[in-house]
């Protein structure tokens, strides 16, 4: 979604440093779940934390839409996104499988598997990723989507990391469903649709800000996010107003305090 330079992470962040990092992540995520929080903002942060904590090169969250298709709602980089798109187009792959089975799916070496031939061929041709872990976003025995963790190096994730990854995926589920109180199943479908539509609006708003301010897409996103935080507004609402022309992009582009993460 928003591209950011890849910082190669050394996989084992160990000991106290890692524990601090983990608790910081959960504290921050818990913070975002209070009151009138923004689902897309929360998912973007969650994806960023997953990359950091699990030593992944990219991560993404996909949701099942009302039409039964998988769609990306948050991704750590354009690379991951490309891959999700390939997967989506191929209509096959670990993520699809993970959602169907509502269980984790791991491909520890993409160059050494005979499953999903179209997907694997597309990944090999267009990306450098060599291993994929897909963790389900679980709700009452069903999967409403999946979190994808992508590594450039082949190999399985340690069990601890998998457990942590699943915990993060569960936080994502809670975040998606808690935006409004979910009492009935029908609301779930509506929430997913809202999340996916918000993504469309935010991408359009990024385009508006990028064009108006002569900024790269990732900075455009940072300006939008910075503006919504400073004004205590929801990112999706700011984006909607930018696209509809109800909010002058000048304010978002020029306002002091805009800076990169």
């Amino acid at each position: 979604m928003h591209s950011e330079g890849h910082v190669p992470m050394v996989r084992p962040v160990t000991g106290d440093a890692r524990e601090r990092q983990i608790s910081r992540a959960f504290v921050e995520l818990a913070d975002t779940l209070v009151d009138d929080y923004d689902m897309i903002d929360m998912l973007d942060r969650l994806v960023a934390h997953s990359v950091l904590l699990l030593g992944a090169d990219a991560a993404a969250i996909m949701l099942v839409d009302a039409d039964g298709e998988l769609r990306t709602v948050a991704a750590s980089s354009e690379d991951a996104e490309l891959m999700e798109l390939l997967q989506l187009q191929a209509g096959e792959g670990p993520c699809v499988e993970c959602v169907r089975a509502s269980a984790p799916v791991a491909v520890v070496d993409l160059s050494d598997t005979d499953r999903w031939p179209r997907f694997v061929a597309a990944v090999a041709a267009r990306t450098e990723f060599r291993s994929v872990h897909a963790l389900p976003l679980r709700l009452r025995g069903q999967a409403i989507g999946a979190m994808n963790l992508l590594h450039r190096a082949p190999g399985p994730l340690p069990e601890n990391d998998l457990a942590l990854g699943q915990a993060l995926a569960d936080v994502a589920t809670i975040g998606i469903l808690a935006e409004r109180t979910v009492r009935r199943t029908e609301v779930v479908a509506e929430q997913l649709q809202t999340a996916l539509n918000s993504r469309v609006i935010i991408e359009q708003a990024k385009g508006v800000i990028a064009q108006y301010g002569g900024l790269p897409m990732d900075q455009a996103f940072e300006r939008l996010r910075g503006y919504s935080r400073r004004h205590n507004l929801r990112l999706a609402d700011v984006a909607r107003n930018v696209v509809n022309g109800r909010l002058n992009p000048r304010g978002v582009v020029t306002e002091a305090g805009a800076r990169r993460r």
Partner: peptide, 19 residues
């Protein structure tokens, strides 16, 4: 669905062109 929903570049470009 790819063209109209699945591709962030298309939405980003829509935002740029509208400006």
């Amino acid at each position: 669905s790819d063209v109209l929903f699945g591709r962030p570049e298309i939405h980003q470009a829509v935002g740029m062109v509208l400006v």
